[in-house]
Design a protein around this nucleic acid. Sequence first.
DNA 1: TAGTGAGTAGACAGAACGGTCTGCTACCTT
DNA 2: AAGGTAGCAGACCGTTCTGTCTACTCACTA
Lengths: 204, 204
Amino acid sequence: MPASGATTRSSAKRDALLDTAEGLFARHGYRAVGIDTVLAEAGVAKMTLYKHFRSKEELIAAVLERRSNAIAAGLAKRIAAAPEDPGTRLLAVFDWLEQAVRSPQFHGCLFIKAASEYPAAEDLPRQAAEAFKGGCRDLLEGLCRDLAVADPEGLARQLQLLFEGALVVAFLQRTPLAGADARRAAEALLAWAPRAGEATGEPR
Amino acid sequence: MPASGATTRSSAKRDALLDTAEGLFARHGYRAVGIDTVLAEAGVAKMTLYKHFRSKEELIAAVLERRSNAIAAGLAKRIAAAPEDPGTRLLAVFDWLEQAVRSPQFHGCLFIKAASEYPAAEDLPRQAAEAFKGGCRDLLEGLCRDLAVADPEGLARQLQLLFEGALVVAFLQRTPLAGADARRAAEALLAWAPRAGEATGEPR
DNA sequence: TAGTGAGTAGACAGAACGGTCTGCTACCTT
DNA sequence: AAGGTAGCAGACCGTTCTGTCTACTCACTA
């Protein structure tokens, strides 16, 4: 065995499993895809799967965990590449969104679907989804705080509605238009949002 | 047999099946609930189910169809009860939304979940979901057209993002806050939207 | 009163499910 | 050369799934 000692992390087979599972789950759903299908497409033996994951639910959770990290990295990169202006940085999130829903690999949000299929509070996929979406809200909240608006938390929650809505509409209507629509709406909300210190209520 | 001659429409057992199925599907998901579970809770024999519906997928489609009609009726009633003012009538949709996600019976949007679990274009549940969400967009579009804005279709699409986003966030975050947030954001988009005849771009 | 249609219970088929187990190979390190 | 480890194939278990079938019971009505 090379370098690493942990038995569970970073194996070629494990990665193949995660890759294949992610693709199949994204296209067909979680419960619709059996373990045997994943194994056949990944070219991996059943015992190998159960050496790396205790159950199908744990495999799903691992897929979501990995995807969550990848998305966080992609978003962070895009934000870092944006100019200093806080408004532009915030809109970079929606640029990322637009590109994400336009990709041919996009088949709806893995996390929303996971929570739909495993809705109980004790289900691992639901917990992963909740954590991820909570992280998205926190990210938006942080960006909004740099924005000198009166109610950054409220604005962040509104922006998240656009974000999630675009994911759903792009999936359901099969139109990538939703990405651009969300961006424009986000600009509008930003423009309309009361600045800090201003009186609440209709700003001009 | 009383009055009606059709064998498929309006039977007490059929309604019991739809009621039970809707509740179970909403709480646990479609594939997670077997027909035997539905039958047991509804107190109906298996053959009766298959006399009314050709398959489980058709049962799901019938549930969605009925729910779609109920929602359309609820929305129409709320809009009809609103004052003449087009803006207020449009916001009535978000009033309905707020009340819907606050209800204890709310467990996420049945249609989004259906499309998640049966994502293929030929699947009946997905078709029902697409039709329903298309109808929602058309409804919003009609209301936006009464509004004398420059781009009613675009505004309607933006509002739908808020609508779907609120459904998702309310489900995932288990917070009814999303309803009120969506309504406030909708007001903002309305206020910000360029009026017909005005030059496009930043108003004022 | 005879017949018809809706509904029932429950057995059944056939497949797919998640998960376990045994034994085997191949490789790498000591 | 020995031993440990990762992975393999594939049989296997019990359960659950959708959907079919038979044989029976009501209630109503012509």
